[in-house]
Write a protein that binds this DNA or RNA. Sequence first.
DNA 1: CCGTATCCGTAACGATACTG
DNA 2: CAGTATCGTTACGGATACGG
Lengths: 141, 141
Amino acid sequence: MHRLILDGPPGLEKEGTSMSTDRTAGTVVTAADYETCPVTRVLRRVGDKWTPAVIRLLAAGVHGFNELDRSIEGISRRMLTRTLRTLEDEGFVSRRTPAAKAMRVEYALTELGESLREQLFALGRWAEAHDTALRAARDKG
Amino acid sequence: MHRLILDGPPGLEKEGTSMSTDRTAGTVVTAADYETCPVTRVLRRVGDKWTPAVIRLLAAGVHGFNELDRSIEGISRRMLTRTLRTLEDEGFVSRRTPAAKAMRVEYALTELGESLREQLFALGRWAEAHDTALRAARDKG
DNA sequence: CCGTATCCGTAACGATACTG
DNA sequence: CAGTATCGTTACGGATACGG
């Protein structure tokens, strides 16, 4: 009911398995899908400019604000803050201040964030496998 | 060399397996990564507003322009055109005019597009599996 | 049926300066 | 070290009207 990108009608995964009954008339993507569907939500988040880099670095063990800042070429502190805050709001990143270690903050992937990272790495492996085709289309344009 | 979201240093997939040698100093995401990395490119494409819906419907057997237009609530012809053109440029969608069938055009997923769709559906299953956690964070914000 | 052209508003992003 | 505040620019998307 609230899924956008997810299994369509049964037998549709591989087209033509069942001789298409031609019931395309009722297929509609509603506006409500865009508010409720968790997939599109995640896609939009991960489709922004800096989120992939931040997730990658957090997974690689970079935890401090300025460390992150220095590790991502071209990012501004403003955008790094915004990106981290949003990831925090969505539950992908945790923020803690070690206390006693003044002027220090530690960002890290939550369990959910780590789970998301796995998905992104999987997409990375897919992109790697289809690198030739992806670049071919890109170079033609 | 040109990967952004993809396997980091060996032994990093599961943190702490090897006692961290603390070599975080050289970890940098360069600006060049953003131009060359096929993952971020795909993420930005799929993170736009209408691409997921279009891919979903093409996979479901909707092929005509106005069919797509009518099947996606709220989309304008302008944005549908732009979305389709971009997907075509990236090699995910094919466009053909049946010829003799005047005033008719057929959009479809290419093999690469079908491959991408599988990845998105996989992400959909992930989102479904983590639905509770995803909504929990969202509702707190 | 399948688009293009034009204009406009908003949101994302960048640059720079300042602060606890 | 870890941010905020302010301002300007650019990209994305919506509305509307027109054309092949």
